[in-house]
């Protein structure tokens, strides 16, 4: 325990972060591990009316009602069937209205990696058809490219309900 903390402090001092990586199809993404609340298996959700299509619904997470977002749908990737191997990562976002928890559905969790700040490269501009505003940067870890997500950007608008179609 103490060693872990020490390692984290060392890592932070060296300007590196621990990232939880997960996969969506062929792609690998990473989120700051300090934002991860828990990882749990797929279970059916309760649908929410008038929600954007990538917000699948809500789940009971030890008494609080937590919205679940399908990242494949959020990124306009091909839809995949939910299997017992499908994983929900529960994350914490900081939005304008305070701390909120939500879950993201991903294909699978891979690894925890150390990413040095110097290894993070900005995402190139792809033009209008690929939106990169929620990609914090790209890191190359043992030959694989990991896209580091800015989850506040990614989810903030969904949970605070700014840019949404009207109720009708």
């Amino acid at each position: 325990m103490t060693n872990q903390v020490a390692a984290q402090i060392d890592a932070a001092a060296a300007g590196s972060n621990q990232m939880l990586t997960f996969t969506l199809g062929e792609e690998t993404y990473g989120v700051d591990i300090l934002r991860v609340q828990e990882i749990r298996g797929w279970q059916p959700v309760t649908r929410i009316p008038q929600a954007p299509s990538h917000v699948l619904g809500v789940l009971n997470l030890r008494g609080s009602i937590v919205p679940i977002v399908d990242l494949r749908m959020r990124f306009n990737l091909q839809h995949a069937e939910y299997t017992p191997l499908t994983v929900i990562i529960v994350l914490t976002v900081q939005s304008a209205t305070g701390r909120r928890d939500f879950g993201v559905v991903v294909d699978g969790v891979s690894d925890v990696i150390d990413v040095a700040a110097s290894d993070v490269k900005p995402a190139p501009e792809f033009g209008a058809h690929v939106s990169t505003e929620f990609i914090e940067g790209l890191a190359s870890v043992s030959g694989r490219m990991v896209m580091l997500l800015d989850i506040d950007q990614l989810i903030g608008a969904d949970v605070t309900g700014v840019a949404l179609s009207p109720a009708a």
Binding site: I48, P49, Q50, S64, R100, F102
Partner: peptide
């Protein structure tokens, strides 16, 4: 708490 108001709910 974690999401937002939904009309009718």
């Amino acid at each position: 708490t974690n999401f937002r108001r939904v009309d009718g709910v």
